Simulated scan of single mutants.
Amino acid sequence: MRGTQHIGITVPNVDEAVDFLVDVMGCESFFSFGPFGPFDDDWMAKNLNVNPRAVIEIITMVRCGNGPALEVFQYTSPDQDANPPKNSDIGGYHIAFYVDDINVATDYLIENGVQVLERPHPLTGGASESGGL
């Protein structure tokens, strides 16, 4: 393996997600396509482990600095659960970005209408302090 190429994230609205990633976070959208499906066979189930009648309405690739690209999906599916997972749920996720000043970055997010749960808590000692997390 050479590294991570992209991470896929399913969102309820690709346009809103990409607008946020580009306009607020400063990422670059570089490729979109879709819809993908529906298929008359079980291709979606066999290849993506989703309902055979699922459709990927649109996929947009977004690059954020030097990290892996984000592949932002918008699905429709007969068995779709519209409730996003919590971080503690199986399939829960988060994305972390490098910034030069965490407090300035937090203020910027708040000024741009992003809900910030709490101010940053510096982690001291061990791997977390050296960026090893």
Rank of each mutant, 00 (worst) to 15 (best):
M1S: 15
M1K: 09
G3W: 02
T4D: 03
G8V: 04
G8D: 02
P12F: 00
N13R: 06
V14K: 01
D15M: 01
A17Y: 02
V18W: 02
V18G: 03
F20A: 03
L21A: 06
V22S: 04
V24G: 01
V24Q: 01
G26W: 08
G26Y: 06
C27V: 03
F30N: 09
F33V: 07
F33M: 12
G34N: 02
G34Y: 02
F36M: 08
F36T: 03
F36W: 08
G37Y: 02
P38Q: 07
P38E: 13
D40M: 07
D40I: 01
M44V: 15
M44G: 01
N47A: 12
N49R: 12
V50D: 03
V50P: 04
P52Q: 07
R53Q: 15
R53I: 00
R53S: 11
A54N: 02
I56Q: 06
E57W: 02
I58H: 04
I58A: 08
I58F: 06
I59V: 15
M61A: 13
V62C: 10
V62H: 03
R63D: 08
C64D: 08
G67P: 00
G67N: 03
P68T: 08
L70F: 12
E71M: 10
V72H: 00
V72C: 10
F73W: 14
P78A: 10
P78L: 13
Q80A: 14
N83M: 14
P84I: 05
P84F: 06
P84N: 11
P85V: 09
P85D: 10
K86E: 15
K86M: 14
N87G: 14
D89F: 13
G91I: 09
G91P: 12
Y93L: 08
I95K: 09
A96K: 00
F97D: 04
Y98F: 11
Y98H: 11
V99H: 09
V99F: 11
N103L: 11
V104I: 12
V104L: 12
T106F: 01
T106P: 04
T106V: 13
D107G: 08
G113W: 01
G113Q: 05
V114Y: 12
Q115F: 05
V116A: 05
V116L: 07
L117S: 08
L117G: 02
R119M: 15
P120S: 11
P122H: 05
T124R: 14
T124G: 13
A127C: 06
E129H: 13
E129N: 09
E129L: 09
G131Y: 10
L133W: 12
